[in-house]
């Protein structure tokens, strides 16, 4: 895990995002236990309270679950991956679109920027 303290993304967010990616990539499989707060804190050299916030965020997002007195586990397989991916995508788009709107782009420009990049990525994928 790579933490960038200089980034404007809060450290707990960086940890949560990277853990989720690791879970999506099957580094940690559903039902498996994640490293304890303290082990994780020492390993990546951040305050244990920050790691706790990352775990709490993932729990709210349904990615992990806490079993009291035992540890933190990757949520069981019933998690709808596609649905979760869609929600994340929607969140990322909202951020991007909000920036566009703030920069006074017209809705049509926003739409065409989106269409263009989607088209470009699909073309790249078929190559």
């Amino acid at each position: 895990m790579l933490i960038d303290p200089k980034s404007s993304t809060p450290i707990f967010r960086q940890i949560a995002d990277q853990l989720r990616q690791a879970i999506d990539a099957n580094v940690y499989r559903p039902g498996e236990m994640l490293p304890s707060l303290r082990a994780m804190a020492v390993e990546i050299c951040v305050n244990p309270n920050t790691v706790q916030r990352a775990y709490e965020a993932l729990e709210r997002e349904g990615v992990v679950e806490t079993r009291r007195g035992v540890g933190i586990f990757v949520a069981a397989t019933n998690r709808d991956h596609l649905n979760a991916a869609e929600q994340r995508l929607s969140k990322q788009f909202s951020t991007a679109i909000r920036q566009g709107v703030k920069a006074r782009l017209t809705p049509d420009t926003v739409r065409s920027v989106f269409e263009d990049s989607l088209r470009q990525i699909l073309v790249e994928a078929t190559k």
Partner: peptide, 9 residues
């Protein structure tokens, strides 16, 4: 600042 961001509450 790196150290502070990592460990400070």
């Amino acid at each position: 600042f790196d150290d502070v961001e990592r460990v400070a509450d």
